[in-house]
């Protein structure tokens, strides 16, 4: 209702503004500078992507000789096919589809796990009178200062001793605890009006029902926003998977790209640059799709709340 009322008011206003601009048609020097910076920035981001995409259409020798290409070659289909379906790697046991699957499992497991842990932790901190609740929260919060890279050796030691090396569990679980998600959900829960909990209590909803029936539906946009951030973060993980998986059937896309390029360092053969470029493009697609798909929710989740 509110949306409709708002647009019906703003449309004529916007139209009037547009008309006014047309009449003036004066370009301020400031605008030129602004747009130059914007366009340069956009080019800086997009040209490399374009070059990788164009290079994916050439064979390895050409790229090796002349560098990355600006226009398509004739190998585009072939390179994508090879990147996805041809077995590669040191042991010839993994193809692009397997790596894509592994990356998806890592990204999804990572996002879902972080949201679950973060939400339940925030729920405990905000809604239960815990003796050391505040202390617990600040301890969780300080772990923001300790990213994975700082604790990577002990983490590896623990996972290795538990016999979880070369498993999805070992890949995902050690990364699931998240101060970021806990913090965002805590802030969100604190903004939920107190009366809602009281009404739910009188309506006979216990802690579990309140969480499932009321808090989770209210957090939908927040969950979507967290999902995007965490999925992309998990998808792009490189160091941790490199350490914890030696079995090539567990390789992720990000590692796969490097694997192809590494052939050069190993000696005799020319690395399959075309295939690596194709794989890089494939690796970019899912995060982009997720962001495009959830974008509306993402902005909503981080900026407003539907209460």
């Amino acid at each position: 209702m509110a949306d409709i009322a708002e647009t019906s008011q703003t449309v004529p206003l916007a139209a009037r503004k547009a008309a006014a601009t047309r009449r003036r048609r004066r370009i301020k020097p400031g605008d030129v500078v602004d747009h130059t910076i914007l366009i340069l920035g956009a080019l800086l981001m997009l040209v490399p992507v374009w070059m990788v995409f164009a290079s994916a259409g050439h064979d390895a020798v050409l790229i090796h000789r002349e560098g990355l290409q600006f226009w398509f070659g004739d190998q585009l289909g072939e390179n994508f096919r090879a990147a996805l379906l041809e077995k590669g790697g040191f042991t010839d046991s993994v193809n692009g589809v397997t790596m894509l699957t592994n990356s998806l499992i890592l990204g999804l497991g990572f996002a879902v796990g972080k949201i679950l842990v973060g939400m339940t932790a925030a729920y405990a901190i905000v809604y239960f009178r815990l003796k050391f609740g505040t202390l617990a929260f600040w301890m969780i919060f300080t772990t923001l200062l300790l990213p994975l890279e700082v604790r990577i050796l002990p983490s590896y030691e623990v996972v290795q001793n538990m016999g979880l090396a070369n498993t999805y569990t070992g890949l995902i679980v050690p990364l699931v605890a998240s101060a970021t998600a806990t913090f965002f959900f805590r802030q969100f829960f604190r903004s939920v009006p107190e009366e809602l909990i009281e009404a739910a209590r009188i309506d006979g909803a216990g802690p579990w029902k309140f969480f499932v029936d009321i808090l989770i539906p209210l957090s939908r946009t927040m969950i979507a926003a967290m999902f995007i951030i965490m999925f992309v973060y998990g998808w792009n993980q490189y160091l941790w998977p490199t350490l914890i998986t030696t079995d090539e059937s567990l390789f992720t896309l990000v590692r796969g790209i490097r694997q192809i390029v590494q052939a050069y360092a190993d000696g005799s053969t020319t690395p399959e640059y075309g295939q690596a470029a194709a794989l890089a493009i494939i690796a970019m697609v899912p995060p982009v799709l997720i962001v495009v798909f959830f974008q509306r929710w993402f902005v909503k989740g981080l900026t407003e709340s539907d209460k």
């Binding site: 009006p193 009366e195 809602l196 009281e198 009404a199 739910a200 009188i202 009321i214 539906p217 209210l218 939908r220 539907d306 209460k307």
Partner: peptide, 12 residues
């Protein structure tokens, strides 16, 4: 049963 000042309806 209680009626609250800001109604406390479940928005979803």
């Amino acid at each position: 049963a209680m009626v609250f000042q800001n109604y406390a309806l479940y928005p979803h």
